[in-house]
Simulated scan of single mutants.
Amino acid sequence: MTVTLAHLPAPSRAVVLACGGFLDQWAALGTPLSVRALRAAGAGGGHLRDWLAEAVAVPAGPGKLTVTARTRPGAYEPGDTVAAIDVDLDLPWPAVSSGPGPVVLGDLPLDPCGMVIGDAAALDSWVGFLPAARSVDGLADLRLDGRGEEEARARYSAQPLPVARGRLLHGWLDLPVAVAYERAAEINEWAVGRGHSAHLAFVDPHSHHHLGVRAGRRDPYGAGVIEVAGSAVVCVGWPPGEVRRFAAGRAFGQVFPVTLEDVEGRAALRWSVPPAAGSIV
């Protein structure tokens, strides 16, 4: 089945498909992502890699780009999962290649932290969780997770949080950061006194990474749309059982092809993740 995930702007005229874990580290590694991406897009597209940061950048047209996903049954968990991501680049095929498709741009590992698709310049503003998450809006979420959770949520009137692939958590959304840390400290002190987990309450500042994960929890395929530097960005995650299948990453050859495709005369970026051995596509 094919589902539409988003319609994205690309004002820089370059769109990026990136591994989310080190997305905010490009500038620290030497050159901002947008500089590298625009250079690659100007050459028709290419793979970018610096230490553990990886991405593919391609040229984009002036209109909004339609991002779709092809899905299949999950190999290790119930429900469907993303099998391929396509981005219509709003360009005619001759604008990206003088020959027939597909054009192989390289490959990417599936990042356990999720994959991110968006405008190259906007993603220079991405705030991740390393070295320490910071809030982009002054807010944070507080979740309860560990021994004593049921007693804590009754005592403190915790609310249900967005479902994470069938697992129901409780806590609070959109608290001022200071309030979230104060409440977490109070709950954890109470938990220790009751013999529960010492770290029962966890604070998640509103980094872009956290907001992307949170948005994906509301989607049956783990895909959510957030705003970064005024532009819509798609964040795609996989359920834990599927992620464990890909945990070895590039070091063990678990990388998947990224291509430019000719789709009825229009250029599209495609990243395909194959099914596990013995599973049904």
Rank of each mutant, 00 (worst) to 15 (best):
T2P: 02
L8A: 08
L17Y: 09
L17W: 14
L23K: 04
W26Y: 09
W26K: 11
R36E: 13
L38E: 14
G42E: 05
A43F: 11
A60R: 01
G61A: 05
K64H: 07
K64F: 02
T66Y: 05
R70E: 15
R72H: 13
R72M: 13
G74A: 12
A75F: 02
Y76K: 05
D80N: 15
D80L: 11
A84P: 05
A84S: 15
I85D: 06
L91D: 06
S97G: 08
S97P: 01
S98P: 00
P102D: 07
P102N: 07
P102K: 03
G114S: 06
M115L: 15
A122V: 12
W126C: 10
F129S: 13
P131Y: 03
A132Y: 08
R134G: 09
L139H: 14
E150H: 11
E150V: 06
A152T: 01
A154D: 06
R155G: 01
Y156I: 08
Q159T: 14
P162E: 11
V163E: 13
R167A: 11
D174Y: 04
A180Y: 04
A184C: 06
A184G: 03
A185V: 04
N188P: 02
R194L: 08
G195K: 08
H196V: 02
H196Y: 15
S197W: 00
A201G: 11
A201Y: 01
P205R: 06
S207V: 10
H209T: 13
L211R: 15
A215T: 07
A215V: 05
G216A: 04
G222V: 08
E227I: 07
E227L: 05
A232E: 15
C235G: 02
G237S: 08
P239C: 06
P239W: 11
V243E: 08
R244I: 10
A247R: 12
A248G: 11
G249C: 05
F252Q: 10
G253S: 09
Q254E: 10
T259E: 09
D262Y: 07
W271N: 00
S272M: 03
V273G: 00
A277V: 11
I280W: 14
